[in-house]
Structures are given as structure tokens and as C-alpha cells.
Amino acid sequence: MEESVDKVITQMKDEMKKTLSSYKKYLTTVKTGRAHVSVFEGIKVESYGQQMQLKQLATISTPDAMTVVIQPWDVSIIKEIEKAILKANMGFTPQNDGKIIKINIPPMTEEDRKKVVKLLKQESENYKVALRNARKKALKTIKDLEKEKIISEDESKRAEKEVKKALDDSSKKLDELMSNKEKEILNL
């Protein structure tokens, strides 16, 4: 029943890939002192009687590194978009000219950068815990398979090595992503 060990390892690797993918998505939302459309895309706007994401209602662009321009497809909801940005409490003041909303991104102070990096490291640790939990679950399943004599001790040892390697590789990727984001934040 070698395939059951392979299935366990495949499931664990898939979990780790999802965790890394989720982490990458999280990194796009981290405030860096530069204009990023991803910071604004998920803002919920009350429009047409329901909550919708800003990216569903407008074109969001960055004409330069310090400016975000939001151009609603329907200018009648521009006030709602402006309210939603203020309500999101991100520290930005939108400027509305009736057709577009312009947001100037203030430069981050050294203290702000250090705070963001500290939060980034804390959040990174949460994602590492998720990776370790995936490993723990896989190892438990492998041990159970060995106990039930479904796999041999040798197969169990081989599987444990593969699990350890997968965790090491995923942790290394996560560290690289965090390190790159940290450099981006501190070197602006």
C-alpha cells in the first residue's frame, strides 16, 4: 500500500503550497510606503444594495509610486467608494474630483517601517505554524499506517525524511518571501 504514503505526502505538500500561496497574497496587502492596487482591491463598498469589492466597481491604477487612482465605472457611487476607503481606516485621505478618486501615499517614517516589519515577522510565524501543522498531521498519519502494519518501518522512515524535506523547502521559501518584503519595506 505504498500509494497511501504517497497520498499522505501529496496532501501535505498541497497544504503547504496553499499556505505559501496565502502568504504571498498576504504580502501584497502589507503597507510598504509605495502605491499598490492590491491594498485597495478588497475594500468593501456598499453599492447597489449590497457589499462589493472595490475592484468590482472601479479601475484601480498607480500612475506613479506614490499615487493610486480609482476610477469608478459608475460615477454615481463615487461617494460610497470614498466612504469605504475612509472606513477601512488605512491612514489614507482620498481626494474626490467627481470623476476619479486620487490617493497620495504618504512616505513611511523609519518608525513606521520598523513596526510594519515587526508585524510582518509575527504574521510570518503564523504561516510557519501552519506549515508545521501540515507536517505534524502527515507524520501522525504515517505513524498510524506503520502501527497498523500497512507500511513497513523502512517505508515509514523514508516518508518521514520526505516530509522533513518538504517542510524545510517550504519554510525556506517562506523565509525568502519575508526577507524580500522586509528589504522592500526598509530600503524605500
Results as ranks from 00 to 15, higher is better:
residue 84 A to Y: 01
residue 127 Y to R: 02
residue 35 A to H: 03
residue 31 K to N: 12
residue 109 T to Y: 13
residue 64 D to M: 07
residue 163 V to S: 15
residue 99 K to M: 14
residue 58 A to E: 04
residue 153 E to C: 06
residue 151 I to R: 10
residue 96 N to P: 04
residue 118 K to V: 01
residue 42 G to P: 01
residue 82 E to G: 03
residue 84 A to K: 08
residue 84 A to H: 04
residue 61 S to D: 07
residue 64 D to L: 09
residue 128 K to E: 11
residue 170 S to D: 05
residue 124 S to E: 13
residue 133 N to M: 09
residue 36 H to T: 13
residue 75 V to I: 11
residue 90 M to D: 08
residue 45 V to R: 09
residue 187 N to M: 00
residue 18 K to W: 03
residue 126 N to I: 00
residue 180 N to K: 15
residue 90 M to S: 04
residue 117 V to N: 06
residue 6 D to H: 02
residue 185 I to F: 05
residue 83 K to I: 09
residue 16 M to W: 03
residue 95 Q to M: 14
residue 13 K to Q: 13
residue 59 T to S: 15
residue 79 K to M: 04
residue 7 K to L: 14
residue 177 L to E: 11
residue 21 S to K: 10
residue 128 K to A: 06
residue 106 P to S: 05
residue 107 P to M: 08
residue 12 M to C: 05
residue 99 K to E: 15
residue 91 G to F: 10
residue 100 I to C: 04
residue 60 I to L: 13
residue 58 A to P: 01
residue 30 V to Y: 07
residue 77 I to F: 07
residue 91 G to C: 05
residue 94 P to R: 12
residue 26 Y to K: 03
residue 118 K to Y: 12
residue 149 K to L: 10
residue 41 E to P: 06
residue 136 K to E: 12
residue 95 Q to V: 13
residue 74 D to Y: 04
residue 151 I to Q: 06
residue 62 T to R: 06
residue 87 K to Y: 07
residue 131 L to F: 12
residue 143 K to D: 13
residue 129 V to K: 06
residue 104 N to H: 05
residue 50 Q to N: 06
residue 72 P to C: 11
residue 164 K to N: 15
residue 161 K to T: 04
residue 56 Q to F: 02
residue 144 D to C: 01
residue 39 V to I: 15
residue 180 N to W: 00
residue 160 E to H: 08
residue 124 S to N: 11
residue 148 E to W: 10
residue 179 S to V: 00
residue 150 I to Y: 08
residue 94 P to M: 10
residue 186 L to V: 04
residue 138 A to R: 03
residue 49 G to Q: 09
residue 151 I to M: 10
residue 72 P to G: 13
residue 103 I to C: 02
residue 155 E to C: 00
residue 88 A to V: 07
residue 83 K to G: 04
residue 43 I to Q: 08
residue 130 A to Q: 15
residue 11 Q to G: 07
residue 167 L to N: 08
residue 120 L to P: 05
residue 76 S to G: 08
residue 52 M to H: 11
residue 104 N to Q: 14
residue 146 E to Y: 08
residue 82 E to K: 05
residue 108 M to N: 07
residue 26 Y to F: 09
residue 107 P to K: 02
residue 33 G to N: 05
residue 146 E to C: 06
residue 115 K to S: 07
residue 91 G to W: 08
residue 50 Q to C: 03
residue 127 Y to I: 00
residue 157 K to R: 14
residue 74 D to I: 00
residue 56 Q to K: 10
residue 11 Q to N: 13
residue 144 D to G: 05
residue 1 M to G: 14
residue 162 E to S: 10
residue 37 V to L: 02
residue 172 K to F: 05
residue 96 N to G: 08
residue 127 Y to A: 08
residue 92 F to V: 15
residue 9 I to K: 02
residue 171 S to N: 15
residue 3 E to N: 10
residue 56 Q to D: 14
residue 18 K to Y: 08
residue 79 K to S: 15
residue 87 K to W: 01
residue 89 N to E: 10
residue 125 E to F: 11
residue 136 K to T: 13
residue 23 Y to D: 01
residue 11 Q to S: 11
residue 51 Q to K: 15
residue 37 V to G: 04
residue 83 K to W: 00
residue 92 F to Q: 03
residue 101 I to E: 01
residue 140 K to R: 10
residue 118 K to M: 08
residue 135 R to Q: 12
residue 109 T to H: 13
residue 5 V to K: 03
